[in-house]
Design a protein around this nucleic acid. Sequence first.
DNA 1: ATGTTC
Length: 482
Amino acid sequence: MKKIRKTDIIALSPYWWEIPASFRADMHVPAQIIAEESLLDEILDDRSLQQLVNVTTLPGILKAAFVMPDVHEGYGFPIGGVAATAYPNGAISPGGIGYDINCGVRLLRTPSPVADIRPFVPQLVSELNRQIPSGMGTPGRFTLSEEEMDEVLLTGAEWAVKQGYGTQEDLEFTESHGRLPGATPAKVSVRARQRGRDQLGTLGSGNHFVEVGYVEEIFEAELAAGYGLFEGQVTVLIHTGSRGLGHQVATDAIRNMVEAMPRYGISLPDRELACVPFDSPEGQEYFQAMCAAANFAWCNRQVIAWEVREAWKAVFGEGAALPELLYDVAHNIAKVETHEIEGETRKVIVHRKGATRAFGPGHGEIPEAHRACGQAVLIPGSMGTSSYVLAGTAQSSGIAFGSCCHGAGRRLSRTAAKKQVNAPVLKRELEAAGIYLEASYRRIAEEAPIAYKDVDLVVQSVTAAGIVKPVARLRPLAAIKG
DNA sequence: ATGTTC
């Protein structure tokens, strides 16, 4: 496969780059990169742009294949990638969504200033750890019956609210109200359902976490006020997805599509890009199962938000003011959306893998209370570094189908990070800086700040590209990890 | 990411 060099890339702006469709004969559209130049140089070192060029060969791909500044290698598609295909018969590819279907981020805001909470941080961490099951194979607080699982897969976060694990307001401030209408529970395999039956309300492992932090700096006062944020305010960030259930849905679909692809005459440069036409039986089977797995993930984050509130009550008393939901946004998902392409309004299938939605002001899918601001975009930093709240702009739809980056983005493999990091020392350093961690030394090494790109530079890139406006920066106080 | 090689 042809290696990509800097000289193959055209600068469209200081933060926007293109590999033209003429680069390789099988490209249907150009490949574009949103990144500040030093990040682009880092990106050139791994296979992520090779993978991006491969994505441009998908049947029915429109406009361009995109990556965000936090891009790194993934399964088939790069993580940090966005691709839209023509509705209804363009490709749907599980590799463009990822194994952790509807991995995403939920931000809660408290009414409390940091000075009121700081003395209670150690107690809060241990209570969060008690309430929120984490790690591989750790079961949650309930085992779903077949009927309950059907309802969770069909109704998502609504199920949790109906059971008392949240409020109507929580649904209002969740992307798609925590329920994708395309879900068909019967399309989720027996094995996937078995893996998920005791996983609701669990965090998982890897880079998944619950973090307590506070608003360190406000960038746009009006937008911050629109989201109910103020300087010094304590926040809680939840990052997790659909656990073993979503992983099994992806595994089932990839196996099925590898087998079905030749029947549709599709051949691609990488078998990890396995895809079928969206409107084919195999495409619909996957899409309906993916929507159901996405609903499971929204229900999971809803139950975890309830667990956070339980921890809050245990520490601050039954009558304490509880964290409220600011927003919940997916960053591993495919959705049917309407976008303007070359002056034409078209329905498209948008794949976002390690990329969040970032719709601009006035869009009907943004909660009414936020509509004038644009959609809240949540960017978790790496462990011990800042996270950001951003707002989608009016231009975002015209760039990468209304999408933005999803985090700092890994720059070292887990193995490389473990070799370079002394976890006990790092833990002490973070504690000295006022950041408490409840995680194994192994996890601390794998998720060390050095293993990630500079989140400030990543956020600067998407801001300068005009996709988002900066709203606030959050500083961590404590995190629990699986 | 993941019953971390069904």
